[in-house]
């Protein structure tokens, strides 16, 4: 049963600890259908933990998370029907070729014409030439593209991308950005995590900053820019970058 709403993801009071270590201390945010949402945070902030809970790989200790109308704790199968996950580290089968990887995923999604699906994906992601080579021979960028292609098999409504461009060169990064924008234009909801402020700035409709277990700021880029205290007193007309906003907010919290 899906609750009619314009929200693809609703997270309230999400808590998670690993043993003594409290990683999420009450995380709240919502993601609109068809939007690109970026979760920003430094190393160890808990971004992957959030993604894993939303993708039903990890159970939260408290709070609720609803994805596409399905509660992750009580309706994980419904969630899995609605989403796809591209983890932080490319999860491709290196022994198989790119094509075999895609055919396998299409079969696991029980699509009627797996080979056709694979061909289409290979073309769309510029991997046709390399299709019959083992994925172990792919460059980092190709591997990431295959990884994302695998996630998109079966046209999931919500796509999670955990640091999709970490470790990529600028060119591959721009390619991934293009893919993400195209997806969003096609109506897919995108949830991405990143450490790169520029990436959030480039892609996201809304940005949330995760710091010390909580969302310390969220909104559109322009809303976040308003939070930047020095902006109005500055002489030179200089827009603060997200990086400066981030540091300003984090610095303010830590001063308290």
């Amino acid at each position: 049963m899906s609750i009619a709403t314009t929200k693809s993801i609703q997270v309230k009071g999400l808590r998670k600890s690993y043993k003594q270590h409290q990683v999420l201390k009450g995380v709240d945010f919502e993601v609109e259908k068809g939007s690109i949402f970026a979760l920003l945070g430094s190393n160890g902030a808990g971004k992957t933990t959030v993604v894993k809970i939303l993708a039903t790989l990890l159970k939260q200790d408290g709070g609720t998370a609803v994805v596409n109308g399905f509660d992750v704790a009580s309706k994980p199968d419904g969630v899995r029907q609605s989403i796809s996950l591209t983890g932080q580290f490319a999860a491709v089968d290196e022994v198989l070729t790119g094509r075999e990887n895609l055919v396998m995923l299409a079969k696991l999604r029980h699509l009627p014409h797996p080979r056709q699906v694979a061909d289409d994906m290979l073309k769309r992601f510029g991997l046709t030439e390399a299709a019959d080579r083992r994925a172990s021979t792919y460059s980092g960028g190709m591997r990431r593209r295959l990884d994302i292609a695998l996630s998109l098999v079966g046209k999931p409504q919500i796509v999670f991308l955990d640091e999709p461009t970490t470790g990529l060169d600028p060119e591959s990064r721009i390619e991934v950005w293009k893919i993400v924008k195209e997806l969003a234009d096609g109506g897919t909801t995108i949830f991405l995590t990143t450490q790169y402020l520029e990436e959030a700035e480039q892609l996201a409709d809304r940005i949330a900053i995760l710091h010390e277990g909580r969302i310390i700021a969220s909104g559109t880029l322009s809303e976040l820019k308003k939070l930047f205290p020095q902006a109005k007193v500055e002489y030179v007309e200089k827009q603060p970058s997200l990086e400066e906003i981030f540091l300003a907010i984090v610095g303010k919290k830590e001063a308290i």
Binding site: A55, L57, R80, S84, L85, G87, F89, A91, D93, R109
Partner: peptide, 10 residues
């Protein structure tokens, strides 16, 4: 992460 990929699928 291959098991995780499979586990996030239906």
């Amino acid at each position: 992460g291959i098991i995780e990929r499979f586990h996030s699928m239906p």
